[in-house]
Nucleic acid binder design. Structure first.
Length: 280
DNA sequence: CCTGAAACCTGTCTGC
DNA sequence: TGCAGACAGGTTTCAG
């Protein structure tokens, strides 16, 4: 489910309340339930529970596609990967016993006030870390797309320093943090660039157009609370805005030519052959 | 340094 | 109806 706009939507909901749940801020951790061992990347379960107990949630942020839940001493980092989602909900019944977990719940943090944070993840790809220094996990990430320091010129330099296909490069989180398959396809179409264009061949104007397109689609995604379809993520509206993603055979919104689908870097890729010519 | 394939997982949808 | 195969919003690891 989660690319930058979906993760941002979830981060805001955890911080301020929303998506059917109350805010997490101010709650004090009491216990942990782990239903799928590998969901916890670090530290081991026993240490995780021991360290977290007694710590208060100070705030929730997003970095790339990571959720950063800041506690008193440590940070709980969560990556939702393909099918992860988070809920804040009542965790105890009238007798103070834990309520049964949902069918795909892999990890839950119980709080002193009886609420719990449930991490559901059908495909079990999601991961959680408890670290004193978030840089331990986030250190390798590329810049945030909305970082003011990421000027058109800086972005052009970044592109020129690599010789890679645009599509896989934009998906590379060490290059730029936050884009996934949907927003990459949407941004490339908006910028009128073919997904197999080589990064170092972009002109200054094309680089600027691409950065602009990336920010535009992400901003619109956030405004619409992300994109939802399938059975995984709900609440978003951006799927009604897709220009090319999952619109194979449908007319391009710009020129009307049927949208095509191919595979690039093992990822389904949607584009308009007219608006996104292979040659410059 | 770059690309592609495989692996990690389960659920849904399509076509025979 | 059953079943095989394709496909899915992500990342890591390894071979060439």
């Amino acid at each position: 489910m989660p690319e930058l706009p979906e993760v941002e939507t979830i981060a805001r909901a955890l911080r301020d309340g929303g998506r059917g749940g109350p805010p997490l801020t101010g709650r004090v951790a009491a216990g942990v339930a782990l239903a799928w061992e590998r969901t916890l990347a670090d530290p081991p379960a026993a240490e995780f529970a021991l360290r977290l107990a007694g710590q208060e949630v100070l705030g929730v942020e997003r970095r790339g596609k990571f959720l950063v839940i800041r506690f008193t001493r440590d940070a709980l980092l969560i990556h939702l990967r393909m099918s992860g989602d988070l809920r804040v909900e009542p965790g105890l019944d009238a007798d103070g016993q834990p309520l049964p977990p949902g069918p795909y719940d892999r990890l839950a943090v119980y709080f002193e006030d009886g609420h719990r944070l449930s991490f559901s993840d059908a495909r079990k790809f999601g991961r959680a870390w408890l670290v004193s220094d978030p840089a331990y996990v986030l250190g390798g990430l590329g810049p945030e797309p909305f970082d003011p320091a990421l000027t058109p010129d800086a972005f052009h330099q970044m592109l020129r320093q690599r010789k890679r296909l645009l599509k896989p490069l934009l998906l590379d989180q060490t290059f730029l943090a936050g884009l996934g398959n949907i927003y990459t396809d949407e941004a490339l179409h908006t910028a009128g660039l073919h997904p197999t264009r080589l990064s170092h061949t972009l002109s200054e104007a094309e680089s600027a157009r691409l950065l602009d397109a990336i920010r535009g689609v992400l901003q619109e995604g956030i405004r619409r609370n992300g994109a939802s379809f399938d059975w995984v993520y709900r609440g978003g509206e951006f799927q009604n805005n897709f220009r090319v993603y999952q619109r194979t055979g449908s007319p391009c919104p710009v020129c009307g030519h049927p949208v095509e689908r191919t595979v690039i870097g093992q990822r389904g890729t949607h584009y308009c052959p007219i608006c996104q010519p292979r040659e410059v």
